[in-house]
């Protein structure tokens, strides 16, 4: 029996798009009373099933609006699928957006603890990793300054350093990470590559077939919420390039 890190089982995700934009109670009640509450349904994901073996690096490709981000969000437990189920074994580290867990009025030091707590780390764990995080982010001189005085590059550096301080079982990467200047980008890429060498399971979303080929060994292609192809990354990249041409 194979050891799967991620199992996505017949997952569908429905959004109700509300035509008239009812967002206040009066309108809602009036429409409810009239029986006039219409939503148009939109299925962002339709019956998607796939499995990722432990240690596999899976590329997720598709055009804009194909449901890539929605899929990642259901795997990261941010969205609950309308139908079907997702099971993930081990610790997930989502590197989707790197500055959401910060508080602007807090110092860098305090934010390390806050952000870590939001990721579900314990106090002990963050204290152990604190020096490493500060060193990796190269923010030693600014660590007691409030975050509102940081540049956006400094914030993403800090976020990346915290999020990757844990050794995850599953790493979720959305699009290409642009973290700070060239030097830091090399450093962060190296850290991710090291993680992958250690056998971390990766989900990688990208439009670039070159990067998918470089990073992944498997890939899936989504079109309008449906899984149209899955297999080895080289073959999938060929199919995807074909799709781009025929578009």
């Amino acid at each position: 029996m194979k050891d799967y890190a991620i199992e996505v089982d017949h997952v569908s995700m429905k959004f109700n798009i509300n035509k008239e934009g009812v967002d206040n109670a009066k309108e809602y009640l009036i429409r409810l009373a009239k029986g006039n509450l219409h939503f148009s349904e939109f299925w962002a994901l339709k019956d998607i099933s796939f499995k990722v073996e432990k240690g596999d690096r899976m590329g997720v490709m598709g055009f804009n609006g194909a449901g890539k981000s929605t899929l990642l969000k259901t795997i990261a437990r941010v969205l609950k699928p309308t139908m079907g189920s997702v099971s993930v074994k081990g610790v997930i580290a989502p590197l989707i957006e790197l500055s959401a867990g910060f508080d602007q009025n807090y110092s860098g030091r305090e934010n390390i603890f806050l952000y870590g707590a939001t990721m579900g780390f314990s106090r002990k764990f963050i204290e152990e990793k604190y020096d490493e995080i500060v060193e990796f982010s190269e923010l030693k001189d600014f660590i007691d300054a409030p975050l509102k005085s940081y540049s956006s590059g400094m914030k993403t550096r800090l976020g990346f350093s915290i999020a990757t301080s844990v050794k995850p079982d599953v790493l979720i990467l959305d699009e290409v990470l642009s973290v700070g200047d060239a030097a830091f980008r090399d450093k962060s890429e190296k850290r991710l590559m090291d993680m992958m060498d250690d056998g971390v399971t990766v989900l990688f979303v990208s439009h670039s077939t070159d990067r998918v080929k470089k990073i992944c060994n498997k890939a899936i292609i989504l079109t309008q919420g449906q899984l149209v192809a899955q297999g080895d990354s080289d073959e999938m990249c060929r199919i995807y390039n074909q799709m781009v041409k025929n578009r």
Partner: peptide
Amino acid sequence: ASIIKKVYV
């Protein structure tokens, strides 16, 4: 909102 949309908490 910005956190809840991105990370599971």
